[in-house]
């Protein structure tokens, strides 16, 4: 199919940001960010094949301040993408297309992501002993 100079689809920059569009583009951003996260998942799993030192190196990196910062980001992105993904599934069943419902489900979803992220981080630090 010819696809020379046809315009690309989402012209994000010509619209005034609204809760619907911001939450939507964040779904993409978190999805791409989580895809990058699979590099670290793979590193973590595969490092075990190279012996205890390599595994400790991977665990050590993830345990560093930068590793923690990254993991916080991945945790929030995961819960955001999961929450918004469920929102998408509800839309697929035809539920919640009115603007007030869209704003409401959006706020509920963001609240869900923030609370679940905090619970996860608190549990993680508690189980690791601080």
């Amino acid at each position: 199919m010819a696809s020379g100079n046809r315009p690309l689809s989402p012209h994000v920059q010509v619209y005034r940001p609204q809760i619907t569009s911001v939450l939507s583009i964040l779904h993409r951003a978190t999805g791409v960010f989580l895809t990058i996260g699979t590099l670290f998942l793979t590193w973590w799993l595969v490092s075990g094949l190279y012996g205890p030192e390599a595994f400790d190196t991977a665990q050590g990196f993830l345990g560093s301040w930068f590793g923690h910062l990254m993991l916080w980001g991945f945790t929030f992105s995961l819960f955001y993408h999961l929450g918004n993904g469920v929102r998408h599934l509800l839309w697929d069943f035809g539920w919640g297309f009115e603007l007030p419902q869209l704003r409401q489900s959006g706020m509920v979803m963001v609240g869900f992501a923030v609370v679940l992220t905090l619970i996860t981080l608190i549990s993680a630090y508690a189980s690791a002993g601080g």
């Binding site: 075990g48 012996g51 205890p52 595994f55 400790d56 665990q59 345990g63 945790t75 995961l78 999961l82 993904g85 469920v86 998408h88 599934l89 996860t120 549990s123 993680a124 189980s127 690791a128």
Partner: peptide, 23 residues
């Protein structure tokens, strides 16, 4: 997406239980 909902929740618990674990 549907399959990933329970799998991701399990994964979060798994990672928490394995924080700082040796090989």
């Amino acid at each position: 997406a549907i399959a990933l909902v329970p799998l991701c929740i399990w994964f979060v618990f798994a990672v928490i239980s394995l924080m700082g674990a040796d090989l």
